[in-house]
């Protein structure tokens, strides 16, 4: 049987080619091989380019290093022109996009928030085998990684000192992928025939273990993680649902937080950012993968997602009809947080 990576990549190329040939799309967003080992990066192919050189389709790949959430890149197509007050006059481009389960859920979240137009998109679903956490691989290597090759379930690594080693792919996956509830995208326009991993528990077990820690321990962990933060905003920028035109962190008119390296500011930044993702975060871990300092954001994005699930029975999934809890209310909403003023006085 053909190798999974090659098979999936080829199927995506075929689908992209079909969409261009049928004149259904103007742009296709997928992944291409990066310039570094263990990296695949977002790739943008235009109908114009493909008309000139159809072989460009072959640059598309799909391996275990496609960690970006491509939905992030859709926002720009629907934004107003810069330095113009009027709405754009040009029609929205028709975009084909390869989506993992998480990317796809972000697309639906954005569509509900009217940040993208679902009908101008062609979603090419890619059932997901999970993406790797490059840091987990680096931890297992004594020297710098200079080359890698992924074949089925193992990743062959060549080190700077000439040594090579094989790594079990499963053991190198991101936590969010190991725990993912929705590895297989749904409600797509087409779907690649490749196996998805089994759905995980959504992080319940890990979080329960974390909850065993004392408040002090949890606070210490949060402090240690956020001490690493350099406020470069990579997390925010990598996040598809962080689309505020002006982030609260950059407000100057009413200044919420400082912009320096102060720990409290970094904490308030993440707390506010993650709270603002309640019911919107799909736990894709794009923020974690983007962070140059390796801050663990997963513990907190996971917690907010589970809280929303428990309190409002809502997970941002593939259903275009349901309303996210921050955009609606019902009488059945949990209201434990509202204290009775009579009781409060007693």
């Amino acid at each position: 049987m053909e190798d999974r990576v090659e098979q999936t990549s080829q199927a995506i190329r075929n689908e992209a080619r079909r969409l261009f040939e049928a004149d259904e799309i103007d742009v296709f967003i997928g992944f291409e091989s990066g310039s570094l080992p263990l990296s695949s990066r977002p790739a943008f192919l235009t109908a114009e380019e493909i008309a000139q050189d159809p072989s460009k389709i072959d640059t598309l790949v799909w391996d275990s290093f496609c960690t970006s959430n491509l939905a992030t890149y859709l926002l720009r197509y629907y934004a107003n022109e810069p330095n113009r007050r009027k709405k754009r006059e040009k029609p929205y481009p028709r975009v084909g996009i390869a989506v993992k389960g998480c990317d796809c859920r972000s697309v639906y979240t954005l569509a509900k928030e009217r940040q993208v137009q679902r009908d101008s998109l062609r979603l090419v679903g890619v059932p997901c085998a999970g993406m790797v956490d490059v840091r987990k691989i680096q931890e297992q290597c004594a020297d710098e990684i200079v080359a890698c090759e992924e074949v089925d379930d193992s990743i062959s690594i060549t080190l700077r000192n000439g040594e090579s080693t094989k790594i079990d792919r499963e053991k190198a996956l991101r936590r969010s992928c190991l725990e993912c509830r929705f590895p297989k995208p749904e409600n797509t326009d087409s779907i690649i025939d490749t196996p998805a991993r089994k759905p995980g528990d959504g992080g319940r077990a890990t979080l329960e273990a974390f909850e065993q820690k004392s408040s002090d321990e949890k606070w210490q962990y949060f402090s240690d993680e956020l001490t690493k933060c350099i406020r470069c905003n990579a997390c925010r920028q990598a996040c598809p649902t962080c689309w505020c035109k002006e982030c609260f962190a950059e407000h100057t008119d009413l200044k919420w937080i400082g912009v320096g390296s102060d720990l409290t500011d970094a904490m308030v930044f993440q707390i506010t950012r993650i709270y603002h993702q309640a019911g919107r975060c799909v736990e894709c871990d794009a923020c974690y993968s983007a962070c140059p300092m390796g801050v663990d954001l997963r513990t907190y994005t996971n917690r907010i997602a589970q809280d929303v699930h428990e309190l409002f029975d809502y997970l941002p999934d593939f259903n275009p009809e349901t309303s996210p809890p921050l955009a609606t209310f019902s009488e059945a909403d949990s209201n434990d947080f509202i204290t009775d003023p009579e009781q409060a006085h007693e």
Partner: peptide, 16 residues
Amino acid sequence: EKITNTCIGCGACTYL
């Protein structure tokens, strides 16, 4: 514009 396609507009490069 093509080079910028992938850029997410964070400041990691400049801070490092």
